[in-house]
Amino acid sequence: MAKAKKKAAKAKGGSKKPTASATPPAQPIKRIRTAKGRRPYFFDDPNIDKLLAMIMALTGEVSVIRERLDTHERLAEKKQAPTSKNIEAYKPSESVDQWRVQWRAEYIARILRIVTDELERIKMQEKDDDYDKIVDEVSK
């Protein structure tokens, strides 16, 4: 394991992170992260909006991990080691890109299934008490 790690570090060109500039400033430049203007909350409890924001951020990170794993597999198919350098250098072909677009769409639809489920029920013109009626009916 240690040997493999060492090898991977070597392939990356050592453990040093690449610098963004030949002459980086002493202090990293920090962006502004919060936009001025009201943050609207839509649910009766704002914490639900916050939880939704967390879940979607997490959904994004899982998508990134899944794509990275896919890159590992694509590299393996070409008998290349999944080093950081190889991962960064990997350029997906158009068909791989299309597969990923499709995968992401299906993945997001899975996560948000319950949202569109509500819509489908309205389209089906199904009322909540329809179900109670059938419970009564089959129990008679």
Partner: peptide, 18 residues
């Protein structure tokens, strides 16, 4: 964009599209 940054961007486009 790095591999993961590009992946995040693709995710947000997919989410927006959905």
């Amino acid at each position: 964009a790095t591999h993961d940054e590009a992946s995040r961007e693709s995710f947000v486009v997919a989410l927006k599209s959905h």
